[in-house]
Design a protein around this nucleic acid. Sequence first.
RNA 1: GCGCCUCUAGCUCAAUUGGCAGAGCAACGGACUCUUAAUCCGCAGGUUCGGGGUUCAAGUCCCCGGAGGCGCACCA
Length: 453
Amino acid sequence: MIGENEAIEPEAVAEGSVTVAGRVMRFRGQGKLIFAELRDGSGNIQLFVEQSTADDFDSFKLLNLGDWIGASGMPMRTKRGELSVKVRAWSLLAPAHRSFGDKWKGISDPEVRYRQREVDLWANRDVRQIFLQRSTIIKYIREFLDENGFVEVETPILQAVEGGAAAKPFITHHNALHADLSLRIALELYLKRALVGGFGRVYELGRVFRNEGLSPRHNPEFTMLELYQAYADYTDMMDMVEQLVSGACLRLHGKTVISYQGQEIDLSPPWRRATMEELIFEATSETVNLAMTREEVAGVADRLKVAYAKDDGSGKIIQEIYEKTTEPNLMGPVHVYDYPKEVSPLARDHRSKQNYVERFETVVAKKELANAFSELNDPVEQRARLEAQAALRAAGDEEAMAVDEDFLRALEHGMPPTGGLGVGIDRLVMLLTDQPNIKEVILFPALRKDERQ
RNA sequence: GCGCCUCUAGCUCAAUUGGCAGAGCAACGGACUCUUAAUCCGCAGGUUCGGGGUUCAAGUCCCCGGAGGCGCACCA
């Protein structure tokens, strides 16, 4: 309707008839003439309703803001130049029994905004935009991966043994099987089995669940992209992150420089690549590495007032130092690479550095956006690492992994050398839409049950 | 889980040192044939998040509970 009738001159009425529908968002009554603003997913259109030419004018005056109506009539342009529909026939499609808040200020109460997102979407126009942008980003990712030969697959959400990440799972129960099952905390293990099965490039874009606290950056269920590429390594995954993120940004904004919470960030590839230890040194002027004894590393942590557990090895302590002193100030984008083996049970041994693995995390605006490695494909080594994890688990570490025999058997059949990548989609959307709170990019975020009377 | 802050009409907000709970928008009634947050007149609207306490008097002060925001913890 809007596109086809751009040429109409002010005060002119075009030939033919159009039919429009939507929710009434505004009335501007003029006695025997009413202007009404109709809105739907595609935009706004003004209705021009005259007593002399519209059906049932008296009933039209009784409509409420929020009512859904359909109307037909002739396209026209008003004296002030606004494209409108000169209504002849109209009908009430569905009444609204509740209002959408102040017509100018909308609704700002986060209780209503998050619990009743349907109201938020009408009351606050910008909110709709965020979710359209989220859709655009996800579409771009699928398009990019599909064009690059990746196959999208779906793997189980209900799992007997959850794995692929260090996190507490949600537990549920299968009645017929008389079995407790976990909701997945990562996509990793099944996707690797798909690689063993011969899919050279696979990805899954899906929900994972972690039984952890809520925060402006954490929702208990969130969307993760994981992809695996045979014959690739972690440096290839760095390229992949850069292409995915800068490409999505370009699609969304037409440029690769963004402003995030007042900070300008240039996402044009290539991005900086630095080892975790280089970045720790830049942030603290302290040197740490795995050639040092545990006592020396612990001494550095003490000087920096970073807490660690008495069972933590040097690798874990180094990671703690990084997370407490370095990451919180990293604007990035930067790929932080070469992690201690101790904290990375699924990543392949570093090709030249002992006790390190080929792993990186991408940090942008102080947040982890991606986590990737050259995947461990040696079944003997993998079994040893998982058994070490299982020992931690038995000792009370709820986030340590369990031994997944099905996964290990799969590796014994042989998995090609592979680069793997995980991207937190919600955080990517936050970054690209300049939102500080993850609840703003999740349509229905997790909230406590409302116990109020 | 811990700390700080917030919660008043359908919505957005006000209410001095503790002193009659108010406005704009929406709704409702009316005027108006080119409006753009239309305008104008009128009318109505309250468990001040819930419960308890102090006081002659509590939206305001104290205690308990609920929800939310932020921070911490947790989150490789």
